[in-house]
């Protein structure tokens, strides 16, 4: 059904029927995956040299959002933890770039004043790790809708905290005057920035892929399906979920640091609960617990947004309708739908 579930029939010596079925699935998914990967590499390069900067920017945004969505999918899709506050991690990651740069230009706070990319990204991930550890430790004491609401509450707290810090622009946001500086490369070149983001996406996806199939991943997925049973097996579910939550926060913080470098303007608005909702939507749209789901979801989301907003300024209306229809009629997300159309779904 998914990449991860396709693989499970490989070592398990299932009957010949199952093997050929999984072969079919693998093909359908491989083709789509290859098309996406090819497009991600070819389109921005061609667009850049064809003077269509718009497409480079769109692709960069897509890739960054895909990283964040992959981070969310790790706990939402695989772990069943419906976090409604993940935009906060993206925002914190972005401010972890913006604030050091602000100080390196405007003096003050010499401890973190820097344009160094290593510092920015390490700071982004560290801040998000700590934030995730603190909020996760409390949130994971709750279940179901309470978890949704408490993660949302922590997201809103962060939003209001940033709004009220006028030094960093408060409500009006903060312009990042300099991008993160690295040895050898410069983020000021759009293709370099894009390449960095794309490479990051691949690394993150590979890491997530390894993790969800590891022993840790088995526990994480087990907790989604039957937490009680896991406890009866003698596993302390809380520790594993909290670890996953922190990892997810770190990934989103990393995406946030990239986003700050890309937009060079950050504001609390990027942490609003509606942003968290959009991120969640990308994950669901793509299909939860599919490795490529978040990428597909983010791509469809952005393309819809771009094409509909060209067609009408009221693009939110058809967008909302599509969102409702997709919830009501496409179960398992687009990845699931693709497989259904391919006739390879056995349910």
């Amino acid at each position: 059904m998914s990449i991860q579930q396709t693989e499970q029939s490989k070592p398990s010596s299932a009957g010949p029927g199952a093997a050929s079925r999984s072969g079919q699935r693998l093909n359908a998914e491989r083709i789509i995956t290859l098309i996406i990967l090819a497009a991600l590499i070819v389109v921005p390069v061609a667009a850049y040299y064809g003077d269509a900067r718009y497409w480079v920017d769109l692709a960069t945004r897509l890739v960054i959002l895909s990283i964040a969505a992959t981070g969310l999918n790790f706990i939402l899709g695989y772990g069943g933890m419906i976090s409604f506050g993940h935009a906060a991690f993206i925002g914190l990651g972005a401010y972890a770039v913006g604030i050091p740069v602000f100080h390196s230009i405007n003096d003050g706070f010499p401890l973190i004043a820097s344009n160094n990319g290593f510092l920015h990204f390490v700071l982004a991930m560290a801040v998000c790790a700590v934030f995730a550890l603190l909020t996760g430790a409390i949130s994971l004491r709750t279940r179901s809708v309470h978890f949704i609401m408490i993660t949302m509450a922590f997201g809103q707290m962060t939003y209001f905290a940033i709004v009220s810090i006028e030094k960093y622009g408060g409500d009006d946001g903060l312009t990042i005057d300099l991008r993160s500086e690295w040895p050898l490369i410069t983020f000021d070149h759009p293709l370099v920035l894009y390449g960095f983001c794309l490479a990051s996406l691949f690394v993150v996806m590979y890491l997530v892929h390894r993790m969800v199939n590891s022993r840790f991943g088995m526990v994480l997925q087990g907790a989604k399906q039957n937490e009680e049973r896991l406890r009866a097996l003698g596993i302390n579910v809380y520790n594993y979920q909290l670890t996953a939550y922190v990892i997810s926060g770190i990934i989103c913080g990393y995406a946030g640091a990239l986003l700050g470098n890309f937009t060079t303007f950050i504001s609390p608005e990027m942490m609003d609960w509606t942003r968290s909702g959009e991120l969640m939507f990308m994950v669901i749209l793509g299909g939860v617990s599919f490795l490529f789901g978040p990428l597909i979801g983010a791509a469809v989301f952005l393309l819809l947004e771009e094409s509909l907003s060209r067609f009408t300024i009221h693009w939110h209306l058809p967008f909302g309708v599509l969102l409702i229809l997709s919830v009501l009629f496409i179960r398992g997300g687009l990845s699931g739908l693709l497989q259904k159309l391919g006739g390879a779904r056995d349910r």
């Binding site: 419906i82 909702g277 209306l317 909302g320 409702i324």
Partner: peptide, 24 residues
């Protein structure tokens, strides 16, 4: 149509409703 669904579906579909209403 959402009653038999899980909370995640509720959140997403009603989020879609918000977009529709705001635009309308």
């Amino acid at each position: 149509n959402l009653y038999p669904r899980d909370h995640l579906d509720h959140v997403l579909a009603t989020f879609g409703l918000i977009l529709c209403f705001d635009t309308l």
